[in-house]
């Protein structure tokens, strides 16, 4: 598979580039902690952080996989729903006038408040977290899709109409592809937000996940484990962002034109 190899190459390059930065930061960190004498509850030694992982490596792997599954599910749903609703809002102005304010209001609900309700509805399931990740993703995608569809060059629209294009053709041949760069901005944001949503969702009585690791470490004052969970969350976030960026370069290779 060419695509798979490309993705791997892309990721490897990003990793290599990142590795150098990370290594430098790690050295500085360790120096500050050891030479600077920073108390371990402010900043633990990275060696201690790694040790926290090695105590129960399985827990970190299971948690990462679980959180990734929740995030990816919710994100995918939110992305598809966001684009569809964005298109619907674009095609039917009345729908937008009536529903858009509700969408905006829905986003003013803090995710923590929303999370409690979702747990009541879905229980401690993977779906509950996916729903919260979905909730975090769909709105920016809707807004950017709408914006992207509206920002299409009217001269291009005129050209396609002069060729006799119908509404569906205008949408699929012109508006959606032209809106892709905008949509991808939201998708990259959404990848990070949905991870945030999944983690927040895990704070409502789940037993596996990065959010659970964070909670356990926080409330048991296991500072090295807390940092280990933070790094894990950061790594997942970076991975998701990198994958989205890669997909973007595949689909929006022509962006420099706009």
């Amino acid at each position: 598979m060419n695509v798979a190899r490309d993705l791997l190459k892309h990721l490897c390059e990003a990793l290599l580039r990142g590795a150098l930065t990370v290594l430098t930061m790690a050295v500085v960190w360790e120096l500050v902690v050891r030479v600077g004498g920073v108390p371990s509850y402010y900043l633990p030694s990275l060696v201690d952080v790694l040790a926290a992982v090695t105590v129960a490596p399985g827990a970190y792997v299971d948690s990462a996989l679980r959180t990734i599954a929740e995030t990816v599910l919710g994100f995918a749903g939110g992305a598809v729903f966001g684009v569809l609703i964005g298109v619907a809002f674009f095609q039917w102005k009345a729908l937008r006038d009536y529903l858009f304010p509700m969408f905006v209001i829905s986003q003013t609900i803090p995710v923590i408040a929303f999370g409690a309700v979702v747990v009541l509805w879905f229980g401690n399931t993977l779906w509950a977290k996916a729903v919260i990740a979905f909730y975090m993703t769909f709105f920016p995608v809707t807004v950017n899709t709408l914006q992207g569809l509206n920002a299409v060059d009217p001269r291009q629209v005129a050209l396609l109409r002069s060729f006799g294009a119908n509404a569906w053709q205008l949408l699929t041949r012109l508006r959606l592809p032209a809106a892709l760069p905008q949509i991808f901005v939201a998708l990259k944001l959404g990848a990070t937000l949905s991870l945030l949503g999944a983690i927040a969702g895990e704070w409502f009585g789940d037993s596996v996940g990065v959010g659970v690791l964070l909670l356990h470490a926080m409330y048991n004052e296991q500072i090295p484990a807390l940092w280990a969970a933070i790094f894990l969350a950061g790594a997942i976030g970076t991975l998701l962002y990198a994958v989205m960026s890669y997909i973007e370069t595949r689909f929006v290779f022509w962006r420099d034109e706009l």
Binding site: L159, L160, R161, S162, F163, G164, A165, P177, A178
Partner: peptide
């Protein structure tokens, strides 16, 4: 609409389509 071949001032090529796919845009829409 669709009865005359119109070419506006700018080329208005679609950047995500190759030369050949830009050229066939109108007949594809047909």
């Amino acid at each position: 609409l669709g009865q005359v071949s119109f070419m506006p001032q700018r080329d208005l090529l679609l950047p995500w389509r190759t030369v050949i796919d830009n050229a066939i845009l109108a007949i594809e829409l047909e």
